[in-house]
Design a protein around this nucleic acid. Structure first.
Length: 345
DNA sequence: ACAGCAAACCGCCATG
DNA sequence: GTCATGGCGGTTTGCT
């Protein structure tokens, strides 16, 4: 897909959380600035509000918009940033005009994207019904409660459900925006833009790792250092008992502590790390599939293929074809979630 | 696709 | 009383 029109729907003069301005900055940094040395054509970014040519207050700043909500229908991609706190709790309704415009844009074939708590706008418009979606981890519970038809996943940085894409909190919006660039303009362009923005093109781990506390990287012993050690020794056979022993605790306690810290189980955590390693090797080396599976600790090539199609949605060779590039900025990993049929591979 | 084995998962309960 | 921990064992999952 060539770069097209991207419209950001903003709600002015409302009690918008301050990080909404950061999200706007993310979208602007990715879509709003032409990158002539990276790609000939770039996106056409528009800010849309209830009133065109307005200069409303927005998160403590005044913001001038030149387009109206009705202009959302005339775009290829619609981005919704965080909605006011009261619209998350349900104490306040989102502007009907906005919801109608979102529905019209979606019906017209626009790709619908939410950053952070923008998912509540898509959900309120009914666009997430029957879809997989995510939001800031602090809001996923209320999102699932208020919109029971939405299949909420709080463990990933973003969900790509085809024509509806949602991202986790705040900075995860940048991961999703880069994913969109990767889909539209290819891995090479996305990697170059990521390098310009001084961020990795893929971040390891989902948002589950941020839910309670991030992994302490420097404590001398305990869970954090064991996970660091495990990540550096993925090619070895690692059992829960091994890791628990290294952490100086029973496997039962290790299991509980890891779940509390990362929201996942030991085997799932290991699998995520190993898939990330395999992706990195596929992208940056020409090692055979057998050696990639061996070096990533996934065992046989058959197992690597199975895990890839199961969790990434494509075969290892297909992944290598799509993402192999000498300009890779950082190790990729399975931090986004694809539709079950992997149709956007 | 299937089977068999090993490991992982997790509820439950006892202990400090 | 609460809380963290660890052992047990039945069930589930994953790998070959």
């Amino acid at each position: 897909m060539p770069p097209g029109r991207v419209a950001i729907a903003v709600i002015e003069n409302a009690d918008i959380p301050p990080w909404d301005l950061y999200e706007l900055g993310i979208a602007y940094a990715v879509f709003g600035l032409p990158q002539p040395d990276i790609a000939e054509r770039w996106y056409d970014l528009r800010l849309c509000a209830a009133e065109a040519d307005s200069a409303g207050r927005h998160g403590g700043f005044s913001l001038r918009t030149d387009y109206r909500y009705s202009d959302l229908a005339d775009t290829d991609t619609v981005i919704v940033t965080s909605v006011p706190e009261a619209c998350i709790t349900g104490d306040m309704e989102l502007p009907a005009e906005l919801l109608e415009a979102l529905c019209r844009a979606s019906a017209g074939g626009a790709r619908m994207v939410s950053l952070c708590a923008g998912a509540f706008a898509l959900a309120a418009a009914g666009l997430l019904d029957g879809r997989r979606a995510t939001a800031h981890w602090a809001h996923t519970e209320i999102l699932a409660k208020r919109f029971p038809l939405v299949d909420v996943d709080n463990s990933v940085l973003y969900v790509d459900d085809g024509d509806v894409l949602t991202s986790a909190g705040v900075s995860a919006g940048l991961d999703l925006c880069l994913h969109l660039v990767r889909c539209d303009l290819g891995a090479h362009v996305a990697n170059q833009l990521a390098r310009r923005l001084v961020v990795p093109t893929h971040r390891p781990g989902g948002q589950a790792q941020f839910i309670e506390q991030s992994i302490p990287l420097s404590d001398g012993e305990g869970l954090g250092s064991v996970l660091l050690w495990a990540a550096a020794n993925l090619d070895q056979p690692l059992t829960v008992d091994d890791l628990a022993g290294r952490a100086g605790m029973s496997s039962r306690t290790f299991f509980r502590r890891l779940r509390s810290m990362t929201g996942t189980t030991p085997l799932q955590w290991l699998l995520t790390q190993r898939l990330a390693r395999a992706q990195s090797l596929l992208e940056s080396t020409d090692l055979s599939i057998e050696l990639v599976s061996e070096h990533s600790g996934l065992g046989t090539a058959a197992n690597l293929r199975r895990q890839f199609s199961l969790h990434i949605g494509v075969s290892p060779t297909s992944y290598r074809r799509s993402f192999s590039t000498a300009a890779a900025v950082d190790s990729p990993s399975a931090v986004w979630s694809r539709p079950p049929d992997g149709s956007r591979a």
